[in-house]
């Protein structure tokens, strides 16, 4: 400690006490070499991720001008957004979208994984077939869906209105603002459940068979085996998948916007606000910051309470 006290004033601030603890020149070189190795990645992360995030937060306090003369407006953008009824609608639409699409994706993924874990003929073929929606390009499946639901020429109306007579009149399921969100949710579930299924299936295959054998010896029913063995075994995988799905769906833009264009979840609303109509990049940035804050709040809560990390 005495040595520390003596040397401290002579050292530049950025060379921390590690050196002071008696580090030799070689260790110092190695440390520098280490920094040189990680520098490219750190630089890329700072330049491509941190800088836009910080700039976005900075912009949210300004009225953005195309000419570059931004005007500082303090919290006015935040007040404007929070008191805007369209923002409240966007939050509500986002919650509905995230909750239903996450629950749907997870349940369907879990169910399909359980079925696919059983042995049956052509199982590997069916397993890979299920992955198709997930690997198909968004834009091509979006166009297929739009065609299916086209009110005049689509097959959906042809079957349910013309052939079966379930609907009294033709309507645009994707176009109508009331029904579009449900189509978007259905699309999200259909497109993304294979990922959930794949993750859960890989976990299911790692469960020790002897656990089930022991349970059978004890006379456990199918449901009891599922509840007491399968569920606890897949709990953390499913919880992690839910967390990822919530994050992904909360920020989901391309699927929702390309398919419907009128379901204003937060990401779509932010885009519309920032880049269309009377383009307001200041308020757009504010929305992005709020979206980020809401999401971080949820992640912290979830990680602490559900994942118990």
């Amino acid at each position: 400690m005495r040595e520390l006290k003596i040397r401290k004033p002579a050292l530049p601030h950025d060379q921390q006490p590690i050196v002071l603890a008696g580090m030799n020149a070689r260790a110092l070189r190695e440390q520098r070499f280490g920094w040189a190795l990680v520098f490219p990645s750190v630089f890329i992360i700072l330049a491509l991720i941190l800088y836009p995030v910080v700039y976005n937060i900075y912009l949210s306090f300004f009225e953005f001008k195309l000419t570059g003369d931004n005007i500082f407006v303090g919290l006015r953008n935040y007040l404007g957004v929070i008191t805007d009824s369209e923002f409240h609608l966007a939050v509500r639409a986002t919650l509905v979208y995230v909750v239903f699409s996450t629950v749907g994706t997870t349940l369907l993924g879990l169910g399909v994984a359980l079925v696919m874990n059983k042995k049956f003929p052509l199982r590997s073929f069916v397993r890979s077939l299920i992955l198709l929606p997930y690997v198909a390009p968004v834009i091509s499946v979006v166009f297929s869906w739009q065609f299916i639901f086209d009110p005049v020429n689509g097959i959906f109306m042809d079957v349910f209105h013309n052939k079966l007579g379930l609907f009294a009149e033709r309507f645009s399921l994707i176009g109508s603002p009331d029904t579009a969100i449900w189509v978007a949710i259905l699309f999200g579930i259909w497109k993304n459940f294979p990922f959930t299924y794949l993750m859960i299936l890989s976990r299911l295959q790692a469960i020790d068979e002897t656990l089930y054998e022991a349970a059978e010896v004890d006379g456990a029913s199918g449901w009891q085996k599922f509840k007491s063995i399968t569920l606890p075994e897949v709990y953390f995988v499913v919880s992690a998948l839910i967390l990822l799905r919530v994050i992904w769906n909360f920020n989901k833009f391309e699927e929702v916007y390309l398919l419907t264009s009128n379901v204003k979840v937060l990401s779509v609303y932010t885009y519309l606000k920032a880049f269309t109509g009377t383009m307001d990049l200041g308020q757009g940035s504010t929305l992005a910051v709020l979206q980020f804050v809401i999401l971080i709040g949820f992640i912290l809560f979830y990680v602490k309470k559900v994942l118990k990390w």
Binding site: P151, V152, N153, E169, R170, F171, S172, I174, G175, N262
Partner: peptide, 18 residues
């Protein structure tokens, strides 16, 4: 109009005699 929000693309309904 044909059902739902529409844009110029729906002119194809005319070409189809609808």
């Amino acid at each position: 109009n044909p059902p739902g929000p529409q844009t110029w693309r729906a002119r194809d309904y005319y070409l189809q005699g609808k």
